[in-house]
C-alpha cells in the first residue's frame, strides 16, 4: 500500500494556495496605467483642488466638528459606483467625482487635511447611518425633501440636478418625459424617479432595479422602453456607452443636500458657511469642472442658493 506522508499531503494544497496568492497580487498590481472611467482624466486635479481649499479658523468647543477633528478623519456616507459623482477608480483606488471632491474639501475645512473614509451607504440606510452616528455626513446625490428633513438635517443645497429620460439609440417616439405615457419605464429602486414618472405619466409601468448599472443593463436588454435617472449619472453613462441616448432636457429640479444628523443646527450652519466660502472663491465651479464639467459643455452653472429647497431651510 502506498501512503503519502502527512507532510506531503499538506504540502500540495499549501503550495497551490501560495501560488494563487502570488497570482492575485500580480494581477492587482499589474495595471496601474490609464483608466476608461469618465472624470478620471481630471484625477490629478484633485490635489490642486484640495491645496486651494480653505480651513476653518476655529471650531466651537464641544461641537461635532471638534469631535471629527480629534478623530482626524471625516466619515462620509457615499457611493463607490456613481460615475462623475463618487466612483472608485479601479486603478488607484481613489474615489473620484463631484460628491467625493466636496467630501474631501469639507474634511480639509474641518480637520486641516483631506482625510476621509467613505462608508458605502444605500438610499435605504442613509437616515439610519446618520442618526446612529456611523457616518458624520452624507454626500450621495441626497435629494432634499421635506419628508426626509424630518429625520435628517440638510445643509445646502450644494448642487441642483434633474431627471432625464434615456432610451436605446434606435428607439423612436420618446423625445421627452410626456412621451412616457403607457410605456414601460425603468427606474432605480428608492430614487425620486418613481414618483416623478407617476406624476408625468400615471399609466406608465415602472420597473425598478437596485443599482444604476443594473438599470442600464435592463434598458439595453429591452426590459423597458426608457430609463429615467438623474442627469449627471445618465450623462456619464451615455458618454461611455454609445447605444444609450438621452432624450430632451431635465424635467424635474432635484436639489442635492449634505445630510447631517437631525437637529445639529450648529454643524448645519458651519457647513453652510463653508459652502458659501467655496462658492464665493470659485472653488465650487472648479469642482464642477473637474467632474460633471468633463462631460457637459460650457461653463459651470450657478450654484443653487443655500436653503432654497423645501426641507433645507
Amino acid at each position: 500500500m502506498v501512503r503519502t506522508s502527512v507532510r506531503m499531503r499538506w504540502a500540495a494544497p499549501v503550495a497551490v494556495a501560495a501560488l494563487s496568492l502570488v497570482g492575485l497580487t500580480a494581477c492587482s498590481s499589474s495595471d496601474d496605467s490609464g483608466s476608461s472611467v469618465p472624470g478620471a482624466a481630471g484625477g490629478g486635479k484633485q490635489d490642486d483642488l484640495v491645496a486651494a481649499a480653505p480651513v476653518a479658523a476655529n471650531l466651537p468647543a464641544g461641537s461635532t466638528m471638534e469631535k471629527i477633528k480629534k478623530r482626524g478623519q471625516l466619515v462620509i456616507g457615499g457611493s463607490l459606483d456613481a460615475p462623475l459623482l463618487s466612483q472608485q477608480n479601479p486603478a488607484n483606488k481613489k474615489v473620484e467625482g463631484l460628491d467625493a471632491d466636496f467630501g474631501r474639501l469639507l474634511a480639509k475645512y474641518i480637520i486641516g487635511k483631506p482625510d476621509v473614509k467613505i462608508v458605502n451607504s444605500a438610499s435605504e440606510t442613509r437616515e439610519a447611518l446618520l442618526s446612529n452616528g456611523t457616518v458624520d455626513v452624507v454626500f450621495q446625490t441626497y435629494s432634499i425633501t421635506p419628508e426626509r428633513a424630518k429625520q435628517v438635517a440638510f445643509a445646502g443645497p450644494y448642487y441642483s440636478s434633474g431627471l432625464v429620460v434615456a432610451t436605446k439609440k434606435d428607439t423612436t417616439g420618446i423625445t421627452s418625459a410626456s412621451d412616457l405615457k403607457g410605456k414601460t419605464v425603468i427606474a432605480g429602486a428608492n430614487t425620486p424617479a418613481i414618483a416623478a414618472i407617476k406624476k408625468v405619466a400615471p399609466d406608465a409601468k415602472i420597473v425598478t432595479f437596485g443599482t444604476d448599472p443594473e438599470c442600464v443593463q435592463a434598458l439595453k436588454q429591452g426590459r423597458g422602453d426608457a430609463y429615467v435617472q438623474d442627469e449627471a449619472l445618465l450623462l456619464a453613462t451615455a458618454k461611455q456607452d454609445p447605444s444609450i441616448k438621452i432624450q430632451g432636457k431635465p424635467f424635474t429640479s432635484d436639489p442635492y443636500g449634505i445630510g447631517l444628523k437631525h437637529g445639529d443646527a450648529q454643524m448645519k450652519q458651519f457647513v453652510n458657511d463653508w459652502l458659501k466660502q467655496i462658492q464665493a472663491s470659485g472653488l465650487w465651479a472648479k469642482v464642477w469642472k473637474n467632474s460633471i464639467g468633463t462631460v457637459v459643455e460650457g461653463d459651470a452653472p450657478q450654484a443653487p442658493a443655500l436653503g432654497s429647497a423645501p426641507g433645507s431651510e
Binding site: E127, T145, K150
Partner: peptide, 14 residues
C-alpha cells in the same frame, strides 16, 4: 418587500 420599499420612499416612515 419592494412595495414596502416604494411606500417608504414616498413616506419616509420605515
Amino acid at each position: 418587500t419592494a412595495a414596502a420599499n416604494r411606500v417608504n420612499l414616498a413616506e419616509a416612515k420605515p
